[in-house]
Design a protein around this nucleic acid. Sequence first.
DNA 1: GCTTGAGCTAAAGTTAGCTTTAGGAATTAT
DNA 2: ATAATTCCTAAAGCTAACTTTAGCTCAAGC
Lengths: 154, 154
Amino acid sequence: MQRRNEISIGTLANRTGLAVSAIRYYETQGLVAPERNAGGQRRFLRSDIRRLSFVMIAQKFGFTLDRIREVLGRLPQNRTPTAKDWRLISQDFRAELDEQIEALTRLRDKLDGCIGCGCLSLDRCALYNPDDVASNKGTGPRYLLGDEAVRPEG
Amino acid sequence: MQRRNEISIGTLANRTGLAVSAIRYYETQGLVAPERNAGGQRRFLRSDIRRLSFVMIAQKFGFTLDRIREVLGRLPQNRTPTAKDWRLISQDFRAELDEQIEALTRLRDKLDGCIGCGCLSLDRCALYNPDDVASNKGTGPRYLLGDEAVRPEG
DNA sequence: GCTTGAGCTAAAGTTAGCTTTAGGAATTAT
DNA sequence: ATAATTCCTAAAGCTAACTTTAGCTCAAGC
């Protein structure tokens, strides 16, 4: 009962490399909205492969699922997104990314100033500007960019 | 019983802006190691203000506490760190940071290529190179891009 | 000397992003 | 027609980085 344009969760998992459980979780988070067949099983569209690929890429850049859902919300709801639709949101995405990289670079440059004075003290240090990098408020894990960027051990 | 060079956890909290509970947690994680007074209360050194300041900065850059503990381990254990000591580890730190920024920039450039083709598909997209940015941490076996190959069925 | 604020510990709760487990039901393969 | 997969749901578990709560002790001010 697998129509041309419909795929099962297992197939989607294989095509994206995601775990089946992860895809189900993404559904609860509103990142995909599959239909159900007569037996109650999820039927995804082929275009969901691209959709979830986007999710994975965005995560690699450090975006949260909430943020990603927002971005995906800019895709047309009433039809399957075209290449042009994806191009548009990828461009917005790139702009945010540029800002993130710049913020990080500014922060790094400030660290340079502090290496000079060796202070690292709250009283004087330029590093304590709250506007630097979007500071993740509240409890829970706070990660923006991968922690172990490159470990020297390799 | 507050000696010249010793401060209470409350004072340390005020000086760093951290919550008292956060400082206690950092102790369990081996990021600070205060002594105790006769009554069992923690007595920190003034130099711990700088130490925790470093922790906060490193977190702002997205480093995990585990990673930060490692970095702090390069400070001398037997004496209070000098400005020069801090300068040395800040430099190492900067190097890692540079790599992080570069990895992110490389990834962004690849996104540019994909905006061109609008593909965002696992089969073709350059974004799925496992060497890009260190894969996300988190729980359990997560086949993110690169951890476990994207199966050969193609 | 008594009250009040600061500290202490251990344990449980929180958020994000999932995975694992348990116990069935639907599909697919033989 | 079975057997073997795959899928389903709900609930619990896990990591990181903390906070909150409960119940008690210590220290400081009047």
